[in-house]
């Protein structure tokens, strides 16, 4: 980890969320992340929000079952909107989580943790904090994978055209 925090440009945050959505479909939800995160199952869950590029206000929110495959999601992307919120489901070993990744800072919003069976409130707090950190670990792995892809020479040559084709495919339905 670097000594100083490096603010993430807004466009990189939305690109990461779009890349994550695309990758989750391409890999059919199976991610091999750098250690210590390891292998996780990841899927787009029940909430997506879009905003116009260069703006911070959300202008389209899709909820319900499988919003990633709706006409509205396609229309938002086709209309040039970018992803602001992506709610994802995660499974690591036998633990399942659900969380919204929000904005360029990837704030973790509405994170649902697995049930903890602690005997006392203080144990519950500690257990839940360790589960929270497990999700942070996965997010760190996702960011690492995205950074590798984004900084690679193949990003402009292969990845962007592939995502563009995927978007066109979604438009075509």
């Amino acid at each position: 980890m670097s000594a100083e925090a490096t603010p993430i440009p807004a466009h990189l945050g939305s690109e990461l969320l779009l890349w994550l959505w695309w990758t989750s479909e391409r890999l059919e939800g199976r991610f091999d992340l750098p250690a210590p995160a390891g292998t996780v199952d990841l899927w787009v869950d029940d909430r997506l929000a879009f905003r116009p590029p260069g703006d911070t206000k959300v202008t389209a929110v899709l909820t319900g079952e499988n919003p990633a495959h709706t006409l509205e999601a396609r229309a938002a992307l086709a209309g040039g909107k970018v992803v602001q919120d992506l709610r994802i489901g995660l499974r690591r070993d036998d633990r399942e989580f659900s969380v919204t990744l929000r904005g360029a800072g990837l704030d973790l919003v509405g994170l649902k943790l697995p049930q903890v069976l602690s005997e006392s409130p203080d144990e519950a707090v500690v257990d839940r904090m360790f589960l929270y950190e497990e999700v942070v670990l996965v997010v760190a792995g996702i960011v690492e994978r995205f950074a590798e892809a984004r900084a690679a020479a193949s990003w402009s040559r292969e990845t962007v055209p592939a995502i563009r084709a995927w978007l066109r495919g979604r438009e075509a339905g």
């Binding site: 980890m1 925090a5 997010v139 760190a140 960011v143 690492e144």
Partner: peptide, 9 residues
Amino acid sequence: PWSPLDFVE
């Protein structure tokens, strides 16, 4: 503030 880029080694 934490930044996602902090995770990029």
